[in-house]
Design a protein around this nucleic acid. Structure first.
Lengths: 155, 155
DNA sequence: CTAGAACTTAAAGTTAACTTTAAGTCAAGG
DNA sequence: CCTTGACTTAAAGTTAACTTTAAGTTCTAG
């Protein structure tokens, strides 16, 4: 089973122009062409595309991904390099995860803040609350936010 | 204690031009000016800036953040709207977290894959391995990647 | 054999979020 | 008062990752 660019795009849920762009940028050197020049994606190309999608989600640039693809095509000599690349990516993701967790804490705090404000009818309720009255799990993030000594605006 | 734009930028670890840009985009209507027109950040403005930073990290656009700031300045009438906004953001972050976790699984698999390849000296080792030989935690992601029936390229 | 849908390329356009530049103004130290 | 470094604005430039356009080609069904 082979696919045209449009079919593969539909299958992956991306625009056909995106796949053409990736090809132009050297991300799809493995895709073969018909005698007339039409791209023919093979079933097995899906794995490449899946990995490319994953690397994109991990925040890698097109340039970096092309480097990886080129290494992969060079064969077993580049195993170490490829391993190093994914190890580095692992670190990047760990960092991203921590940041995301922190962001979530902040948003959770804000939800509590506005739920409390809603009940009371004013943001003064959560805003002027003593730290001891604030649910324990929000205290750290609240203090982090309250760098200022004075009371902040109605944020 | 007040800060100029340059001092505040240094304090937050961003470029001064970024703060000016945010101001131009309506994100900093609370920042006052000296008689000469110089921005004077107050200590309490840091909380606003911290929240803006958090919302950016959560993937919100400048436009969305401005909306929030405008609502906050309108006072208690917009509590419900602000709560709804953070609740929506909570969902977005949950989604992001799941995606990130999935990406991490893929990268973990790739690390295992290349560690195994490194030991054997060839990617054939992990590539041609039977599913049963693959560590249990990588089986799901491997199958997900192997949508194709035939063996894929040396990815 | 032909119509038309989907493909091809190169080049230009888009978008968001900054960043840089240019020309000028403010403020603090000597 | 003057210098100097940091500030001001408006406008133009940058970057990445697409997306769109235009002009032409290929494939498939009738």
């Amino acid at each position: 089973m082979v696919y045209t660019v449009g079919e593969m795009a539909k299958l992956l849920g991306v625009a056909a122009s995106t796949l053409r762009y990736y090809d132009k940028e050297g991300l799809l050197p493995f895709v073969e062409r018909s005698s007339g020049g039409i791209r023919m994606f093979r079933e097995s190309d899906i794995e490449w595309l899946q990995v490319i999608g994953c690397m994109k989600k991990a925040g890698m640039s097109i340039k970096d991904i092309r480097q990886y693809i080129e290494m992969a095509l060079q064969g077993d000599d580049t195993i170490d390099l490829r391993l190093a690349m994914f190890r580095r990516q692992q670190e990047v993701l760990k960092q991203q995860m921590e940041e995301l967790q922190h962001t979530m804490e902040m948003v959770d705090y804000k939800c509590w803040y506005y739920e409390t404000a809603k009940e009371a009818g004013t943001v003064d309720a959560p805003q002027k609350m003593e730290l001891a009255e604030v649910p324990e799990r929000f205290r750290k993030i609240r203090q982090e936010l309250r760098t200022a000594p004075g009371t902040a605006a109605t944020i």
